[in-house]
Amino acid sequence: MTSADTSPASPVTAPDAATRLSDILWRRPRLLIALLIGPPLAWLGIVYLGALFALLAQSFFSIDEFSGQIRYELTLSTYAELFRAYNLDIILRTVAMAASVTVAAAIVAFPIAYYAARYATGRWKAIFYLGIMLPLWSSYLVKVYAWKLILAKEGILGWLFETLHLTWLLEAYLAIPGIGGNSLSVSWTGTFLVFLYVWLPFMILPVQAALERVPPSMLEASGDLGARPGQTLRHVLIPLALPGIIAGSIFTFSLTLGDYIVPQIVGTSARMIGQAVYQYQGTAGNIPLAAAFAVVPILIMAVYLWIAKRKGAFDAL
C-alpha cells in the first residue's frame, strides 16, 4: 500500500509535452469528447444543416410568372404549386413507388438475412457478404443500364419467356393498365424491379444485423410455449427484427424518393420527385419549386419515422 512513498525512485517523472497533453485529457474526459466529435459535428452543422436551411429558405420564395425571375419575398405560393394536379401526381407516384419498393425489399430481404444470421457460418458467411456487397461495388449506372438490357422487349427476360413459351403470360401482364406497358423496360414494373435490385442490400444488411441480435433461445422459448414456426415469426421474430426493418426501410424509402436516374432510364418517362427537382432546378431557374419539391421527401420521412415510433417500432431497441 505504501510502496509508492517508500520506493527510492519516485515513479512520477517530469512529463514531456505529449504526456502533459494526455494528462489534461485524462483529467478532463469531456474535453477529449469535445475534441473528438467537434469537427464532425461542425461539418454536419454547417455543411448539411446550412445547405438544408438554404434550401428551405428558397422554397419560400416564388418565381415571377412572366419574367421567370425569382421574387425574393416570403410566400407559400410555391408550396401551393405542389398541389397542382400534375405536381401532386409526381408526389403520389413517387410515394407509391417508394412504399412498394420498401415492402417488397423487406419481404425479399428477410429470408436472405435470416439465413445469413442463423445458418451461414465461416466461408458461407463471407460469400454472403460478398454477394450482398458486390453489386454495391459496381457503378450504379452500369447496373441500371444492365437492367435496361434485361428488361428490354428484345432483352434477356423477353427471350427467357419466349424460350419457355410463356410470352403470352408476359403479354397478359404487360396489358394490365398502370403497371404494364409496351415492354418491361418502359413499364412501372420495370422501374420497380430496378429499384428493388439496387436498394436491396440496404435492406438486407440492417435486417441481418437485427436478426443476429435475437438470441436463439428467444425462438426456442416461443416454440416451447406452443407457437408454430409461423406464429413465432409473427409474434417474436418480426417484432424483434422491426428496428432493422425500419432502418432498412429508411434507406430504401428515402433512396427511392430521391432517385432521378432509374426512372429516367427504365420506366414510362412520367416524372418522379427526384427528376422533378432536377428539371425544375435546371430550367428557367425555378429553384423555389425545386426546393419545395426537395422538401417533400424530408417531410414524408419525418412523418414516416413519427408513425413508426408511435407504432412501437423501436421498442425492442
Partner: peptide, 11 residues
C-alpha cells in the same frame, strides 16, 4: 422450459 438466459421477449 425455463431458459438459462430466461429468454423473455423484450418487446
Amino acid at each position: 422450459t425455463v431458459f438459462q438466459d430466461y429468454a423473455l421477449f423484450p418487446h
